[in-house]
Design a protein around this nucleic acid. Sequence first.
DNA 1: GGTATGATAGACCATTGGTCTGTTTCAGCC
DNA 2: GGCTGAAACAGACCAATGGTCTATCATACC
Lengths: 236, 236
Amino acid sequence: MPRVIKHPEIRREDILDHAQALFLTQGYDRASLNDVIASAGISKGAFYHYFPSKEALLEALADRFARQALAAVQSVLDDPDLDPLGRLNSLLSQSRQAKIETAAEAWALFETMFRPENLVLFHRINLAAHASFSPLLVKVIRQGVEDGTFRTFDPEGVADIVMQFGLATHDVVAKAIAGGSDADMEVAIEVLEKRVRLYEIALDRILGLPDGSIRIGEPGYIRAVMTARRKADKAR
Amino acid sequence: MPRVIKHPEIRREDILDHAQALFLTQGYDRASLNDVIASAGISKGAFYHYFPSKEALLEALADRFARQALAAVQSVLDDPDLDPLGRLNSLLSQSRQAKIETAAEAWALFETMFRPENLVLFHRINLAAHASFSPLLVKVIRQGVEDGTFRTFDPEGVADIVMQFGLATHDVVAKAIAGGSDADMEVAIEVLEKRVRLYEIALDRILGLPDGSIRIGEPGYIRAVMTARRKADKAR
DNA sequence: GGTATGATAGACCATTGGTCTGTTTCAGCC
DNA sequence: GGCTGAAACAGACCAATGGTCTATCATACC
């Protein structure tokens, strides 16, 4: 094997990229270290020079995911024109960043992320995301409580419940993927939209808001994501 | 090794027992098949005579857990004197079966179940539990909707959210375990009781009930479980 | 130009989940 | 009681895995 030397940061990202592709397509357990280093075109020595273990690679990957997600909502957090409710709604929908054109990509991520063999990876990402998002959510909620928009005795608890919304959709999406047919997809869309409405009124209640205040995503967004995926599927 | 022949069902349960002990103490990944067969005192041939793979063993274990849990609440489901709300509350608290004396055991299960290395096992159990519990919950909720106690447009969604309550406590408990000190425990108790109250009012709302209708567990139950554990810990 | 240090290669290792062949036990039949 | 076939079990064996170790290359710096 020819010896290629890259800048450490580049090489590291390189390994992460290849690992991400393999872990997402085959799952963390089924993708072997040999697969990773073969894909990245490096030797075992090189790999262990950058990561102390396969587990550490997984964690680094989860961290990167969480950081990227955080960066994606940074503008919402920084926007000074948003009141607490608006900020919370924007965070929940994330629709400012996730435009409809990228819906197909969003689905691709969903599809791979929620596959059963990706449980471990998904969980790590969730942990990392929780660790970095929770404090921000708590901050927003606390501000809302102070200025009187929200009313709750447990901001951290509310934040956790908000975070769990992601997990909540897990089962539904997983089943839709397992099924795969158009009919399954249609069912999944309806179930998800109902579920979203349920979460909205639950959040309204535990934040002491009048009904209809919380709006998770724009109406029809889920359908847009799902149908975009269907189109992409049929194209290939 | 002497050749001991047991009744197939006995042998199977035997293997499951030893696997359960090992998986819970060491985690599914870290406990090797050799550990399991050594602990069970059998050969590889014997093991693969009963289970097609290590994965299948995990699934069988999860199934058994789910079946046991189901059996534990069967009386609540069969009780003809309970109205839908009472039945739901009883299911949520499970306090009829889980008396305070068994609190220490409950904790032991919690402690092992929620350890990070048991993610996979926990998830399988959760899936199995979800599969068998959800329909029952939906049935109860549907009855409540019919007789006018509950009011919701999405019984399945409500059932799922109820089921997720178990997962919700996961993080809190996991952190308390990670900490381990009395102070950590005290914090965990308070956080958990707040979280429970939050869930109660959220469920009240999405079931169209007046506040205070849903009661997850008797007041002080969490503290009872936690302190029982503390006593058990200090005893040894 | 020498050299220390980081970056890379690849042989090597113990262990793992899983397979395969062979042996023992025993119920059912004559 | 003896025979037989299938179920129950034992254990050698295997490829692959995550991880270690030593040797080699490249480069920045004096």
